[in-house]
Amino acid sequence: MAVTSKRGTVATPRSTNRQPGGLSLGAIVRYVLLTFFSLLAFSPFILSFLGTFKTPAEITAFPPTILPQNWDVNNWVRVWNFTIPSVQGLLLPRWLFNSTWLALLNVATQLFFCSLAAYAFARIRFPGRDFFYFAIIASLAIQAAVTIIPAYVFYSNIGWINTFWPVIIPRLVVPVGILMLTQFFKSIPKELEEAAYMDGLGRFGTYWRIALPLSRPALLTFAIIAFQGSWNEFLAPLLFLQNPNLMTLPVGMSFFRFQYTNDLTAILVGAMFNAIPILVLFFFFNRYFIESGSYSGLAGQ
């Protein structure tokens, strides 16, 4: 079967080799391949989720089992109750809490400051606008691996190590959000805003009352990118949040992995604590996730 174009707008039925009502051979081959690859893509999550209910003996059994022999929730309880001598209280709930509020805070500040800057780049004329826009694009190439050392030195000197500041302040506003939302604001018609501006709403009022409500889908798409970025971030929190009390889930999980090298069920439960919230979010908002995926690269062009 030929490669079919499937844009909704191009509604030309060109599948000459597809009988109405029946499936062509091409479609069957496609279904088989799609099923195979989908299983391959999703099986690690299913297998490890099932694995979390196995006993330590069963998890390393050979040949491996797929379904646990006895469903045992004890592993989840054990990981939830994980403590270390130097810290009071349970660690896992704390990491979950840290990751959650940090991600929500990052999303909130990035939505506001990125859309504000994007609005200026799309609508307001000021000297140096193109220069600053270019600087934002160029900054995408400057990645964490290059700046972690000076960041570490700098934060040590101002007393930021083992505080949350290094994962809040540098992330108040991020380039990818500005680029993406600028493109979006440019694509919506100005007329509505101009009328509001003439009525004396002012620039901020126009942005806040007119432009933002019109951009809900784009804002949601960007919120997903921002949340995913914050929730999954590893290197920066690993360096700057070394106190187990302050760790986020991914850092906590890696800490956990080095504490329990051989306790595979515990490691898998840890992975699930990190994966399940974002996977649930993904199944509810998968359209926005996928849109954000196709967007995040293009914003960098």
Partner: peptide, 30 residues
């Protein structure tokens, strides 16, 4: 393609890039 249920497959296929590299690493460790 315009096949029925294609969005479902797209969702499943996209899942590996949703979770963090640490999660994937821990799963593959096993």
């Amino acid at each position: 393609t315009r096949l029925r249920g294609i969005r479902f497959f797209r969702t499943l296929l996209y899942a590996p890039s949703v979770t963090s590299s640490v999660v994937i690493a821990l799963i593959f460790f096993w």
